[in-house]
Design a protein around this nucleic acid. Structure first.
Lengths: 295, 295
DNA sequence: TCATTGCTTTGTATCGATAAAAGACAACGT
DNA sequence: ACGTTGTCTTTTATCGATACAAAGCAATGA
């Protein structure tokens, strides 16, 4: 009843390590391998048994060494290695964003369960988890309401985002000179500059850089509630970037410039400058999002 | 498999309405009753069938009228009328607060399921829902970690609370004179004064007043993320009040005075005064909470 | 025509079972 | 003594089944 996705992805990981030639001199002990791939020894043993059966690993007087080379066919495919939860999340986001679901729609657990090929339980657990993003809401003694990704949602989201970011930016500027975060900020600055130089081909790398930058600012003074909120931002932007490709290069170029101004403001440690650069960037991020919703 | 708690609590509600003499002239239609008690007609019919069987309602040429008087024994008991979810929540809070569970403890779904008399599924769903409060966290491919109600938790909570409350208070002061919220604020002010006069006997009514006051301030300009956060505050204070009874009267008296100062500041519409009264009140609320944690 | 009640279909809340994975214990060799 | 592997026990992830409740449809009567 429980799928063996953990085992399958562990096997894939092991094959990759073998392919990299890491174990040419012989395989490590079960426990060491366990640590490397982050699963239990039970699973490691299962993987090793299977690899031995396939001849990819062979036993030679007491120790295990690599056997025949690894082929493409030895790997398990994507869907086989993702758990039900991840599966449901992807399918749900797809359903929500591409399905043109209108705000106010009632969500039917049974229907989604059939559509996604899981038990209703799985849908329910996902929705409970997902409800913290504020896009769906449980109706008492009844189903779920899809509240939708509306303009109001975006405005409320950004109101909070501005508050949190201004707070973190202010605290960042107060960090002592010797804080390692300054070094990391500078490294990020150079990554921005590099990206800007190759913007023609690498413009979609911005998404990840954006995420790392804003999380770094928050690290100045961690707060679990702000971190939780950042997860919402990350989710929204992750799927929004996939969905809205119009003018991506131009938008990202502008955003990089804003980030650079913001970074320099942080480095100046001038509160006024920081607040203004931060506000300016967030305002244009908000407007971009709103514009893509209006369509 | 699904318990009939909805039916049982609907039956209790109907008995209460009957007891109040509301239906002395004859019962309303199924649909009207449905609206009054907030369940489906299916459930209403089930209730009526049972009440008729017991002779509490009798059929008289076409219409239904009250029959024999309602006795104590006709009511279903508390546990029979609460859903699994509510049950689990109460038991979990009890387990957490009175059980002296240390931060860092691993939570065992199976054990809790046995202890609370539900299927593991129920525990899991509860924990997923509860995790948004930041007190428990899921470990990948393994159990749940109880993070605990620590000093850090309280400090981080209050940092956000201050930000949100200052924002809402500022917006409250900007409401137009004719906003109905001013009237409601004034009504709450008088409730505070009344409570203060009878503080000796009614001091534990403050908890609910406190909650209503802070929610009113937030209503000045609703934001779903702030509302979500308020749920955390409510939960924490709800259980904290039950748990820490020391000096309750004194603490509440002081808090009422602070509220009154805060309300008057709002009514003055003076930003400085508002910010200072708000800060002062939240600082003492935070200190009270911290002091009770230290013990 | 529309509210009322009777009946049917659909959907939700909950349980129990089971395979997979994690974790604990035992035995062994060095 | 301790790291290694072999074996057993506990816990988690997931499914399917089922009683209860909601929602839809039909018939009836004022």
């Amino acid at each position: 009843m429980k799928p063996d996705t953990v085992y399958k992805s562990a096997l894939n990981t092991t094959l990759q390590l073998l392919g990299n030639g890491e174990f040419a001199a012989g395989l490590p002990s079960e426990n060491q391998l366990r640590g490397q791939i982050g699963v239990s020894r039970t699973t490691v043993r299962k993987v090793l048994r299977e690899l031995t059966r396939r001849g990819i690993v062979v036993q030679e007087d007491g120790t295990k060494i690599p056997g025949r080379p690894v082929g493409k066919d030895d790997l398990y495919s994507g869907p086989e290695t993702t758990s039900r939860n991840e599966h449901v999340e992807q399918q749900f986001m797809e359903w929500m964003l591409r399905g043109g679901i209108k705000p106010g729609t009632l969500i039917n657990e049974l229907e989604l369960a059939r559509q996604f090929g899981v038990a209703t339980n799985g849908i329910r657990e996902f929705l409970i988890r997902f409800s913290r993003f504020g896009l769906v809401e449980k109706k008492r003694n009844s189903g779920w309401l899809f509240e939708g990704f509306t303009e109001d949602f975006a405005l409320e989201l950004f109101e909070i985002r501005v508050m949190f970011e201004l707070r973190s930016a202010r605290l960042f500027a107060e960090l002592p000179r010797e804080s390692p975060l300054w070094g990391r900020l500078n490294a990020l600055k150079h990554q921005h500059i590099d990206l800007l130089e190759n913007i023609e081909v690498r413009y979609h790398d911005f998404s990840s850089l954006d995420n790392r930058f804003h999380r770094l600012v928050n690290e100045s003074s961690p707060n679990r509630f702000i971190d939780d909120f950042s997860d919402i931002i990350t989710l929204i932007f992750h799927y929004h970037y996939q969905w809205n490709k119009a003018d991506e290069k131009e938008r990202n170029t502008a955003a990089i410039m804003e980030h650079l101004a913001y970074i320099e403001a942080l480095q100046s440690r001038n509160r006024r400058l920081i607040a203004s650069a931060c506000r300016k960037h967030l305002r244009s991020a908000r407007d971009t999002l709103l514009r893509s919703l209006a369509k």
